[in-house]
Amino acid sequence: MTKTLHYIFDPLCGWCYGAAAAVKAVDKAPNVALRLLPSGLFAAVGARPMDEDFAAYAWSNDQRIAGLTGQRFSERYRNEVLADRQQRFDSGPATLALSAVSLSSPAHELEALEAIQQARYVEGQDITRPDTLARLLKGLGLEAAAAGLLHSGAELLAANRARIESAQTLLSQFGARGVPSFVLESDGRRELLQSSALYADPQAFAAQIAKA
């Protein structure tokens, strides 16, 4: 019996970046289908300017995540992303890019998410820019998704809204607080997962889901 793990995230969420190893382990687990659902948490009304106070808060939080998970937050990210007062904290473009991948090459959406996170947190790229995102997608061989992102037609915008609405519905249904959140669906039943192994032991987290 195949189970579905609904992974609710935001591409600008540092804790979601910290959960990357666990998500990748689940993606490789037998009899588990991974469904990515961007929440839109930091898009639209959730977006904000990158001011001094918020940048300092973000960097402090990032260091906690790095210490817990081993994920890298580079000085280049600190100097070229957090210190850039023209670059908003806005996950809308990256969310739309992932929805473009989900339409044209759904099997590669997790790969695209990882590339976007790497570009921001390690390489210090501005992933709030559609041209940056399109270049990343093309580098993965996802030309159709890149073209779809730059065109942003009605089909893509509708699919993006539907994915965000699905994520928000699940969060509301289970009273989940923020992202990342994981909802496991098996035999017609859904449950919100709680696991201390998510950051400390990604393989144990994947094993927990496989055995659930």
Rank of each mutant, 00 (worst) to 15 (best):
T2N: 10
T2Y: 04
K3G: 09
T4G: 02
T4I: 11
T4K: 12
L5V: 10
L5A: 07
H6M: 03
Y7S: 04
D10E: 06
D10M: 04
D10F: 08
P11Y: 05
P11C: 09
C13H: 12
C13N: 14
C13R: 12
C13A: 10
Y17P: 02
Y17L: 00
G18H: 10
A19K: 06
A19W: 08
A20R: 15
A20C: 06
A21H: 14
A21M: 01
V23C: 01
K24D: 12
K24C: 04
A25K: 09
V26M: 04
D27R: 14
D27L: 06
D27H: 14
D27K: 14
D27S: 15
P30H: 08
P30K: 10
N31K: 14
V32E: 13
A33E: 12
L34V: 06
L37G: 02
L37V: 10
P38E: 07
P38R: 00
P38L: 00
G40L: 07
F42D: 04
A43S: 15
A43C: 05
V45P: 06
V45H: 07
A47Y: 11
R48F: 01
R48Q: 13
R48Y: 03
R48G: 01
P49I: 00
M50L: 15
M50Y: 03
D51Y: 11
D51L: 05
E52M: 01
D53W: 05
D53S: 13
F54Q: 07
F54K: 09
A55W: 12
A55L: 09
A55F: 09
Y57K: 03
A58H: 05
W59D: 11
S60H: 14
S60T: 15
S60P: 00
S60G: 15
N61Q: 12
Q63V: 05
Q63G: 02
R64V: 08
I65N: 11
I65M: 14
I65R: 02
T69Q: 08
R72F: 08
S74R: 10
S74Q: 05
E75P: 00
R76K: 13
Y77I: 00
Y77D: 06
Y77S: 05
N79G: 04
E80N: 14
E80Y: 04
E80L: 07
V81S: 03
V81Q: 11
L82A: 03
L82C: 03
A83K: 09
D84Q: 11
D84H: 13
D84A: 09
R85E: 01
R85C: 00
Q86H: 13
R88K: 10
G92Q: 14
G92K: 12
G92D: 03
A94R: 04
A94H: 07
T95M: 05
